[in-house]
Computed example of a mutant assay.
Amino acid sequence: MTRNNKIVLVLMLILGTAIFTFSVRNVSFRSLVGDITKLKWQWLIVAVVSMLLSFFLEALVVRVLLKREGSLFPMRDAIRIPLIEQLFNGITPFSSGGQPAQLFALLQSGVDAGRATSVLLMKFVVYQSMIVINFIVSLLVGFQYVSDKIHVLSLLFVLGFAVHFIVIISLVLIMYWYNFTKKIVKFFFRQLRFFFKKEGRYLKWEQVVDEKIDNFYNESLRLKRSWKLLVKISLLTLVQLFFYYIIPFFILLALGVTHVNLIMVTTMHVLIVMIISLFPIPGGSGGAEYSFSIIFTSFISNSSKLVLAMLLWRLITYYLGMFMGMVALVVKPKKVLNTDENK
Rank of each mutant, 00 (worst) to 15 (best):
N338P: 00
E341Q: 02
L13H: 05
E341K: 00
L255T: 01
L139Y: 05
M274Q: 12
T237S: 14
S304K: 06
V46D: 04
M274K: 01
S23A: 15
L306A: 06
M324T: 06
E85A: 10
F55V: 13
F88K: 04
L255V: 00
S95C: 03
M122G: 04
I168N: 08
S109D: 12
F196D: 03
H269V: 05
N342T: 05
L106Y: 10
G97V: 02
F250V: 08
I247S: 02
F56P: 02
Q86D: 13
S129N: 05
K182T: 05
Y245I: 13
E58K: 11
S23E: 14
S285E: 02
F135A: 10
L139S: 04
I169M: 14
V49G: 03
V126T: 10
D210A: 11
V172Y: 11
M326E: 07
F55N: 03
F94C: 03
W177M: 08
V231E: 00
Y202W: 07
E58Y: 08
I91Y: 01
F216Q: 08
R30D: 15
F188R: 02
S118Q: 09
K212A: 09
Q128Y: 03
F299M: 09
T317R: 01
V24E: 03
S118A: 14
N261D: 15
G200W: 07
R201F: 04
V10L: 14
R115F: 02
T258I: 01
